[in-house]
Design a protein around this nucleic acid. Sequence first.
DNA 1: TCTGGGGTCCTAGGACCC
DNA 2: TCTGGGGTCCTAGGACCC
Length: 429
Amino acid sequence: MVADTAPSGAMSRVYALSDGNSFYASCERVFDPSLIDRPVVVLSNNDGCVVARTPEAKAMGVPMGAPWFEIRESYLRAGGLVRSSNYALYGDMSRRVNAIYDQYADEVEVYSIDESFLDLTLAPAPEQHARQMRETVLRWTGIPTCVGLGPTRVLAKAANHLAKKRPEFDGVCDLSDPERRMTLLASMEVADVWGVGRALSARLAANGVHTAADLAALQPKSARQILTVMGERIVLELQGVHCSALEVTAPARKGVAVTRSFGRPVSTLAEMEQAVRTHAVRAGEKLRRHGRAAPQIVVFYFTSRHRDGPQRSVSGVETFPVATSDSLALSAAAGRLARRLWKPGYLYTKAGVMLDGLISPTDAALDLWHQPDPRRGELMRAMDAVNQRFGRHALAPAGVTYQRPWGLKQDMRSPRWTTCLAEVPIAKA
DNA sequence: TCTGGGGTCCTAGGACCC
DNA sequence: TCTGGGGTCCTAGGACCC
């Protein structure tokens, strides 16, 4: 039996999932018309692998996640175009798109840089409403989107998947109607259901579950046996039973990590120390932006499995007397850990700083012997304000430099068209 | 030369306690 | 003769997501 509303007569809702098509690549196209109708890929940090592809690049057979060094030659030879990722641009475009969603929906949950859940329950004709919204987003920002509609978030996600894959939907798919829903879910592989990855779909296949409709037809109890509570929730939501609401206000951060591959391998302690101290300062900025404090810091670094030579992977932790978001304290601790863990004779390729178990600074355990210096808070606020005004690298603690030979590769980054005054486009008469 | 970065949630199992 | 059992807390690791 298929339940179509939440129990006890609760009002059934209409959720939408709207996302930008090939979002990063679409952002690049908005400001560079020479990319229109051409194959374009956008690369991950460090120009490592492909993270976004225009339909033309997909048609050339470039797989998602393809290592750039592997496809580079043949891709460029075939006329493909490429950009390093430009997060300043994508983040700003995302903000603009969400500002439009806000005008069309009662509530918006920003789920990721290119996806938002919308509550369209009060819209008289949700599908029409979604089509109008889609047109407005395209006209005002230049970003093409697809929208999926359904009574639960899992169904809205599934509908969005169908809207993207099936041109006949023209960018909007509605799974509100139970009969139509079962027909369409039967055409969808179970691995394409939100929350079902490689491991779970293998487990499901062993139980004869191959399509999204098969999964929706399971008894929630058997789903729980096969997939634990997550699976039970997915099945209920596929059946139209509302289990998860929108998270309109972002929940407090639990962890923060800053990790980077090096532009080239690092073999000296001086460089390693500088790298992790720089990561720690960035982590401190994130902590303060989210209003959190870290009780401890973890530093790690390792060599690459993809390289010959001796391998080494280490990590160490230092606990603070009082949870902190002070960049100077974080950086000093990171430096100590880097030294403590150091062993020469290796080509290290990646290092990172992780802060977990974050708390609110006001909950930081008060310690009679370790009273935080109030001037440190002032200093951090001043530093953040200066960097906000004059750019991220304007002011940094000693021992942290942004002239890093070990830093990122991003040789093909487009200008920060919308967020950096020196790089805004100039219209010619 | 060369394979991203940053999150969340859940579970199993060990430590510890009474 | 005979050597408990149940609860809680924490952590590591797996799985998933974009």
